[in-house]
Amino acid sequence: MSFDEIGKVFLILLKYLLPTLKVFGMTLLFSIPLGMIVALLKMCKVKPVSWLMNIYIMIMRGTPLMLQVIIAYFAIPMLMQNAATPAWLNSLLSGVDIKGDAYMFRSVLVAFSLNYAAYFAEIFRGGIESIPKGQYEASACLGFSRTQTFFRIILPQVFKRVLPASTNEIITLVKDTSLANVVAYAEITMKAKQQMQLYSSLTPLVLAGVMYFVLAMVLSLLSSFIEKKLSYYK
């Protein structure tokens, strides 16, 4: 490939960085709060609730994300075609526009968010359980309510403790966004594959690799920076 061609391919891939970042950012936006809720529900003393969360986490972690993306994408169209689907569900689903790009993005986002929430939930649970009991007891003796204790005393400390493990997940997520191409969601990997075929060259794939690498680096530097900022206490 000539330099000109490489430049052209690079610009095309750069354009598709946005959809990649869209999946990445939106997944974080949904999966982190959802992960926190799942973590709290899993620690809930009502056993069935805790079991339910366990099953959810087991399924999400025990099956491939790619499979989950495919299922999320095809579930609604398949149900609509299936004669066995009850009428009420059919009428509910018929309102969904399954042809547009928006649907594609949403189904990818649903699969990613549910999957990552499960991983985040386990990280957060570990973080919450690692806070010494004495912190809760001191808070109780000082008259803090349970909500105040959680948000003022426990959560800030949990944040610091889960940062390294969460960074791991977040960097994995950047690379996992490439799985969205399995349902033809147009992002970097998909475009790189197309360009590879167009030019019969591996260079577009290497360029895509460099882009993921840079993203991962930026995230890892950002995480080190925050970690340093939080190192004022132990």
């Binding site: 007891e137 001191a138 109780a140 005393i153 132990k234």
Partner: peptide, 17 residues
């Protein structure tokens, strides 16, 4: 009642953050 009494712990339990 809680606010009428205070407790000092063996291992302090200060809030580290």
């Amino acid at each position: 009642i809680r606010l009428k009494i205070g407790l000092v712990f063996q291992n302090f339990n200060l809030f580290p953050h």
